[in-house]
Simulated assay, not measured.
Amino acid sequence: MNLKEVKNVAREKMKGYCRVCPVCNGIACAGEVPGMGGSLTGSSFKSNVEDLSKVKLKLKTIHNAKNPDLTFDFFNTKLDIPIIAAPITGSAFNMGGALTEEEYIDSAVNGSLDAGTIAMIGDSADPTLYESGLEALKKVNGKGVAILKPKENEVVIESIKKAEETKTIAVGMDIDGAGLITMALKGTPVGPKTVEELKEIISSTNLPFILKGVMTKEEALLAVEVGAKAIVVSNHGGRILDHCQSTAKVLPEISKSVKGKIMVLVDGGIRSGVDVFKMIALGADAVLVGRPIIFGAFGGYKEGVSLIIEDMKNQLLQAMILTGAKDLSSIDESMISIEW
């Protein structure tokens, strides 16, 4: 099995839902929500990819970074790479259903582990999908993260308790899911959270709490205030708000405002190991990857997921060698130029 074969199989299995384009940039699928596209015009999805492409690497080859260290410490769990599979549910209504929800989750969780990293599992309007995710993590001794939708507090806290029983590494909330059309269609109330509501949720657990969906420095500082241990700079893949800023563009300001106070993760438009390098140079500690993981799962189950991640790892390694970065902490804004 190789990457070309994985993508060809994925393209066939996802026909009518995703074209698995040569460049996954949100143009062909604009407005396809539910589905794999971005909201309305698809501008937010497209901007994530476009703006990241405007970040350029500076080639340097006179240095001693011959064997870069790619390892990343994620809440006392050592990962081989700073890449984590993003929390994704909805195989049936977003991806065509060629894989059952259980098959997709198992592929993401086990394929990530085989590649030296972990996956996040997601929540949805259907509570059985979250249960399936927890079951997959239980089988691997909790080596993953449970991310919840911004439902009513009592529902969220109950779900956190289930994650604790599974012994997950961390828990969190994709608060940017507050406006998901798919949730509304299923009749499940979700919405924004106040500072007080977040404090109640976070104080209910001793697990590290991740707040996903932060797009301004003001809300990054609020995440620190409410006790979150990590944020994910994310606009939900451009699927919730049209004409939203890209994650690459807002990341530097957000990172500078909270660096050292909280772990900074980011997603949105990341398609290669070079993109991972760019996001770290812009201020991230690590990244979440979504659509490439989907293609890997549909194209080759856990082996496909592992192959996708390993390919990104090799690309990141090459980028670090050719820019003089001996480890992740060495990657900074001096190694890139920005053309926006």
Rank of each mutant, 00 (worst) to 15 (best):
S272L: 00
K302G: 01
S272D: 00
I254K: 00
S272T: 15
N206A: 01
M263L: 15
L207C: 03
V195Q: 14
E253M: 00
L282R: 05
L251E: 06
Y301W: 01
C244Y: 09
V266Q: 08
I202V: 13
L282P: 06
V224D: 09
L251K: 10
G296E: 05
G260P: 07
I254L: 10
R291V: 09
L211H: 04
V232G: 08
G213T: 00
I294R: 04
A286D: 11
V287A: 08
S272H: 08
I270A: 07
S255C: 07
E225Q: 13
M279I: 05
A220T: 14
F298I: 04
D275L: 10
V258C: 11
I240W: 00
M263P: 01
L241E: 09
P252E: 07
A223Q: 04
I280E: 09
D285G: 10
V266L: 03
I231R: 03
M215Y: 12
D242W: 00
P292F: 13
L207K: 13
V274R: 14
F295K: 07
G304W: 04
F295C: 09
P252R: 11
A230Y: 02
V224E: 10
I270P: 06
K199Y: 12
I254M: 05
Q245H: 11
V264W: 00
V258A: 10
E303Y: 05
V233H: 11
K212A: 15
E253R: 00
I262C: 05
C244E: 08
M215K: 12
T205S: 11
M215N: 13
R239W: 01
E218T: 13
N206R: 14
I308Y: 08
A284E: 01
I293G: 06
F209D: 02
A230E: 00
V258E: 09
I201E: 04
L307V: 01
K278C: 11
V274F: 12
K199G: 04
L288I: 12
G300S: 02
K256W: 01
S246G: 15
T216F: 06
G268P: 06
L307F: 02
L207R: 02
N206M: 03
V276W: 00
L241T: 14
R271G: 03
V232H: 09
A248C: 08
I201R: 05
A284S: 13
A230W: 04
S204H: 02
E218A: 15
V274H: 06
E253W: 03
M279S: 15
G227L: 02
